[in-house]
Nucleic acid binder design. Structure first.
Lengths: 233, 233
DNA sequence: TAGTGGTCTAGACCACGGT
DNA sequence: CCGTGGTCTAGACCACTAG
């Protein structure tokens, strides 16, 4: 249940609890959540606290409140994008292709006294002995959060699968800036571009389900990728 | 001051009031706002109400609260998300700027036996007698769905507000491709670019809440816009 | 120590939706 | 009508910052 003496605020505990239940499917899409009055009794806390938790869930888009009716699960899905959370590897595998990575940089760097694993990888797929490179990405991951992560070899291994399986820390949120850039010589070479072309770059942070930052990324996409954005309000 | 009998909630009145004061320069960047206790006395309302207003200002990025020190103005310039469903006009108005449109094309075209209103508009905002152009957009709207829409003059009038108010048809979903493009002479001229730059273009369809297509759009964004993508799984 | 924001309680009244 | 969420009050205690 909720722990009133935890250093984590009650509204935050409740928010996480409800979110877990929704994501686990205990409350399904369209379901009615317990009313605020019921939650008061269930957890022995006041409505103000409950409403603070609800407010966050509404902002996350997990839940919808309707005046006079109640609070409903509303698992609205945004985006069928290039960005997916199983990571690049499974995206490629889904298409029955073989993912390939070339690691250009793999080192431990320091920033503000913190150690990070810095990766620079060219990523693509192999088909009929043809290799198509699709993205160039830079990642930084805090080693304090992922001790020993720098010992893995990411030529063969999926970064996100490692985070999920070996660290129980699956990526859950992103916060990205989408920026148009011009291809430089390096990129033209990698992506096989005949001339300077405008490309898309995504830059930002990746978070786990508790909202803690687990990665900063910067990805340049080859033109073979279509960037789709579907969104519902 | 604040009107307790207004149908607009007190926290909303306070939020707008503080925002106006900040944007008008009564509180400058870095200034300390009155403490929550002082605001209680100033406006005769409780802290809960004040904190609700503050929370919104923090989310807008206008203000920063520091535990034990106070609430500071933190006016970070430039943009938020590009695509919002209130449309361009209200996006600009929210920032207390005046939206401006220049209509290059306004005609009825036929496609597959259907009549569409075709608009090509340069859009921007005016501040201190300076006009900043921000997007160039092409729209096509089916006249069968919106009879008489071609009679409006969209220099003064917001397209989305018209669809919502006069046709009860607010936009609800989008399906967009995000494409990087190079600025041509026309765009460099409009956006005041000194040289060829990569720009973002969004292209796709807009739907109403029943899933019926109401618009096809193609928007090129000036570099003053940041394109943000936040996503949760 | 005094003042700030952060959390929480225990009420109240209201507007809205369905019966 | 009752139950829902929306707003608001009047307190309380705490953790943090600064003089």
């Amino acid at each position: 249940m909720l722990n009133k003496n935890d250093y984590v605020p009650l509204y935050e505990q409740l928010r996480k609890l409800l979110r877990r239940q929704i994501l686990k499917g205990e409350y399904k899409n369209g379901d009615l959540l317990p009313s605020e009055n019921e939650l008061m009794k269930m957890y022995g806390i006041t409505r103000t606290t409950i409403r603070k938790a609800m407010e966050a869930l509404v902002r996350e888009g997990l839940v919808q409140q309707i005046h006079g009716r109640g609070t409903f699960v509303r698992f609205q899905e945004i985006t069928k994008t290039v960005w997916n959370f199983q990571g690049f590897s499974s995206l490629v595998k889904e298409r029955n292709e073989i993912p390939i990575s070339k690691v250009f940089q793999h080192e431990v760097i320091r920033k503000n006294g913190e150690a990070y694993l810095k990766l620079r990888r060219l990523r693509g797929m192999s088909r009929d002995d043809q290799i198509t490179w699709m993205t160039l990405d830079d990642s930084e991951l805090p080693l304090r959060r992922f001790p020993g992560l720098d010992q893995y070899r990411f030529e063969q291994r999926s970064l996100y699968a490692t985070l999920e399986k070996d660290y129980q820390c699956p990526p859950r949120f992103v916060n990205l800036d989408i920026i148009p850039v011009l291809s430089d010589e390096e990129l033209m070479d990698y992506f096989g571009l005949p001339s300077i072309k405008p490309l898309l770059k995504a830059k930002g942070q990746v978070y786990d389900e508790d909202g803690h930052q687990i990665e900063t990324v910067s990805v340049v996409y080859s033109p073979v990728f279509a960037f789709k954005l579907a969104r519902s309000l």
